[in-house]
């Protein structure tokens, strides 16, 4: 019942704009051009989304159960062959968060096993079109030497890599996932601790230092600009080090387990962000999480 009303709105606007071309009476040129540009933008987004959606995804968009835009994506925990062991716990570890990039589209995929990454020497361009295209691909637990007990192999990448809208350095904003406080600031790292229990920690890596709009212990609101996505990776031996242009996004959650003898164990673990990010992205595409300056 509700979707036809929405479609009615969109169709009517489209009809009106089509008919406007031969209006014999004077029009407000300013508003016409504004409408036109809105229409163009909306149309190109629809076209892009339609061209990348699978049939089942398209059909599900007319379902009243999942009304949000579908995003072509690989399953959580499923990594491309040869890139890592993956993981099994695909729960949403941060329900309701704000998608951490201000602009869409954005692309979740590997920075190592894609063009421009060290594992693909045959194609050195990080700006290759396939990097800036759907489907989303999980890369939590991608092969790394770091201990990550969540991974099936016990080692792996501790976050999810996100490419911004376009392959442009120092341009696109990373925003706060939740209301909270900035609790760590490194040369290319900003950590945000959420105000609400369980006080999740969101770590943003590779932000451009000069663009940071936050300082240590600043309070931020959900959707607030933090810094621009860049290729900054700090220094090594005093020399600047660069990666590809992307946001490495981590979530850490305090967890506990009580053993059968009553002993309580606890840990502060990296958890897979993919499911939470995918959901946040869908909500973002539907208008959730406006950017806060």
């Amino acid at each position: 019942m509700k979707i036809p009303r929405f479609l009615f709105g969109v169709l009517t606007v489209s009809l009106l704009l089509t008919g406007c071309d031969d209006l014999p009476f004077p029009t407000d040129k300013g508003s016409e051009s504004a409408s036109s540009s809105a229409s163009t933008s909306s149309a190109s987004e629809s076209a892009s989304s339609a061209s990348t959606s699978s049939a089942s995804e398209s059909s599900s968009s007319s379902s009243s159960v999942t009304p949000l835009p579908e995003v072509p994506h690989q399953a959580a925990g499923l990594l491309p062959a040869g890139s890592g062991s993956g993981y099994d716990d695909t729960r949403n570890w941060a329900p309701g968060i704000c998608f951490p990039l201000a602009d869409t589209p954005a692309y979740a995929n590997s920075q190592v096993y894609r063009p421009g990454g060290s594992a693909v020497p045959s194609n050195p361009s990080q700006c290759a079109p396939e990097n800036y295209a759907y489907p989303w691909i999980d890369n939590f637990c991608e092969s790394r030497s770091w201990v990550n007990p969540v991974c099936n192999s016990g080692k792996g990448h501790q976050g999810q890599d996100l490419r911004p809208k376009a392959c442009t350095n120092n341009t696109y904003w990373a925003v706060a996932a939740e209301d909270g406080v900035i609790t760590q600031m490194g040369s290319y790292t900003v950590a945000l601790t959420a105000d609400a229990p369980p006080y999740r920690v969101y770590r943003y890596l590779h932000l451009q230092n000069a663009s940071l709009k936050v300082g240590l212990h600043d309070r931020v609101k959900r959707g607030q600009k933090i810094g621009k996505v860049s290729n900054n990776m700090g220094t090594s031996g005093g020399k600047p080090v660069y990666t590809t242009i992307h946001l490495h996004f981590e979530i850490r959650v305090s967890q506990s387990e009580t053993l059968s003898d009553g002993t309580m164990l606890a840990e502060n673990a990296f958890v897979p962000p993919y499911t939470a990010l995918l959901d946040a992205y869908q909500r973002k595409l539907a208008g959730d999480c406006p950017v806060v300056e």
């Binding site: 009303r5 709105g9 969109v10 009517t12 606007v13 329900p95 959730d288």
Partner: peptide, 27 residues
């Protein structure tokens, strides 16, 4: 009217999805 209803509906969809998520299994 259509555009306003559509916009309101889009927002409603976003919030209803958020509510749905809160109810979804999570730690």
């Amino acid at each position: 009217i259509g555009a306003v209803v559509g916009l309101a509906h889009a927002q409603e969809m976003a919030s209803s999805k958020a509510a749905q998520l809160k109810a979804a299994p999570s730690p």
